[in-house]
Write a protein that binds this DNA or RNA. Structure first.
Lengths: 204, 204
DNA sequence: ATGTTATGTAGACGCTTGTTTACTTGCAAC
DNA sequence: GTTGCAAGTAAACAAGCGTCTACATAACAT
């Protein structure tokens, strides 16, 4: 009876590890949703990637939609980007955008958004995410009139990056001088967010 | 085999009218794809909306994907927007964007793009559309370095409008003064397209 | 009226989806 | 060992998808 009496939560590594399996599924879902969007991913794909049984996805997360929601909840890097001094917000957003370009597959979020509004239930989840994590924090940093409209314009740039990257590729964007690209994006975000329209350009 | 003894387009109204049915299906597809994207629409939905039999969709268009391509081919309003004097391009794009906001459901295109990249075949169709109808014409108008990168940035704004509108709604954008909104968007497009970064703003 | 052809229809095909059920197996306490 | 339970599995479920085939029917030429 030489049995190892281990503390609960100690370093024992059972072959059947609920938490580890759950984590593998969650990671697989994050990667796949990020790459193909909600509709482009099947529960079987997630399970295969996680090297787990298909039924475990529903067992641990209830449903595919709920799993999607949990993935979304873990992807809030942009929160830290928005937070900070309001004056530097456009540049921080621009730098974030450029950073996403360089990372590629790691950036689950933006790619997730464009192809993921199938069922109304998922649309609801996405809506709340965008509202609470992106739009609302930006609005909170803005002074002046039409704060929400300005935040929506900035969101337009952020969300447009996904489809453009996915469909048209980003080699041509990466090819450009990163500093210049950042400047350009900063100007775009500034134009979107400035309290008053930055300039009245000559109409055509 | 010329079995049409009547003038084409004359006043006969047969109950079974191939062209009319085909048109009804195409219109229904345009509306539905515009509203729900490629994956969000089924062949049966299209047939129901067109008050036609499901099999006729495939009979007249070969496949759902081919029908999508035909719908896309008919949606090239933006072509005329891009064409014109290069200096006024940012403002024309901005005005187009604002116009889309006001129209709502008529604007099939932009809403079609974000949720429509399911099968690789459809992605191919979309890619060529974006490339030939949006990016390439814009590039053709640009001078200076990194023309394609700048065109992609402008496309980012255009394509971002779809998801933002669909998910977050556009009432807050419409609420703002249209003239001011146009100015703001013009500045954004200018920042994206200008030969050199418009300004180097103080970093945060 | 009759025959032919194009148009429309009903239904099934094969496949994939998310989900659930019944079962097997590993692990640990007794 | 033996038992009990959690973890994992295989298979099936119902529903939905795009597509196709066999059939009915309206419209025209004769």
């Amino acid at each position: 009876m030489t049995r190892v009496e281990q503390e609960p939560g100690s370093a024992r590594r059972p072959k059947r590890d609920r938490e580890a399996t759950r984590r593998r599924i969650l990671n697989a879902a994050r990667d796949l949703f990020g790459e193909h969007g909600y509709d482009g991913v099947t529960v079987r794909m997630i399970a295969a990637r996680a090297e787990a049984n298909t039924a475990l996805v529903n067992r641990y997360f209830g449903s595919k939609a709920a799993l999607f929601g949990e993935v979304l909840a873990g992807e809030s890097v942009i929160r830290g980007v928005i937070a900070g001094d309001p004056g530097g917000l456009p540049r921080r957003l621009a730098e974030h955008f450029v950073r996403l370009l360089d990372q590629g597959s790691v950036t689950a979020m933006s790619r997730m958004l464009d192809r993921s509004a199938g069922q109304p239930e998922v649309k609801e989840i996405l809506l709340h995410y965008l509202e609470d994590v992106i739009v609302e924090p930006i609005v909170a940093q803005l002074d002046g009139p039409d704060a929400r409209a300005r935040a929506l314009l900035a969101s337009t740039i952020i969300m447009g990056g996904g489809p453009v990257r996915r469909l048209l590729g980003l080699n041509d964007l990466r090819a450009a001088d990163p500093a210049e690209l950042t400047d350009r994006l900063t100007a775009m975000f500034t134009a979107a967010l400035a309290p008053l329209p930055t300039s009245r350009l000559p109409a055509s």
